[in-house]
Amino acid sequence: MTTRDLVLAALFAAIIVVLGLLPPIPVGFIPVPIHAQSLGVMLAGVVLGAKRGTVAVLIFLLLAAIGLPVLSGGRGGLGVFMAPPAGYLVGFVFAAFVTGWISERVIKREQSGLGQIASFFVAAVIGGILVDHLIGVLWLAYGPTNLGLANAFLGTLAFVPGDIVKAVVAALAGRAVMVGYPLLPARA
């Protein structure tokens, strides 16, 4: 990893922290207000790609684990990694990786703007929603919470609509950042 890659990942971790400090944003048609922090995880993937995006999220979670109150709502410490939603938190790492991995491979410079946004959206949905919820559900079902797969699956559904809104924002932002300051490593 070059020094620049390390710094980009650390700066993005700082952005994810700041997004968590913001009050949740209510969105008209969804009951649960949206926390910007998991948006930050999707953004790490679409903006920085797989490797640097994953490192950004790892640094962010490391800060939380060692006792800095960087998670939304000022949470932090090892306790949050034991709590019921811990799977979603650890899932962030894989979410950023998969989002970035797909982004690097499907987004092309010569694509139309709309095509790029659609590609980023697919990457954010698969990585940021499917992968993250999968790990979150597995932890709820078989971790210390031991809720059972069917119940855990039911619980996770409530958060999917909000996450889809985030995926849309991440896709639009991913494309806008790529136009303004391209960082995504291009792959054939």
Binding site: L8, L11, F12, V47
Partner: peptide, 30 residues
């Protein structure tokens, strides 16, 4: 809006990466 806040925030922040990385290399920190 989340979008119009996040995009400039990301670009303005990440643009400093070159400078910070150059400073780390110039000081031989790694």
């Amino acid at each position: 809006r989340p979008l119009t806040l996040a995009v400039p925030l990301i670009i303005l922040t990440l643009k400093n990466a070159d400078d910070i990385a150059a400073a780390i290399d110039a000081r031989g920190i790694r």
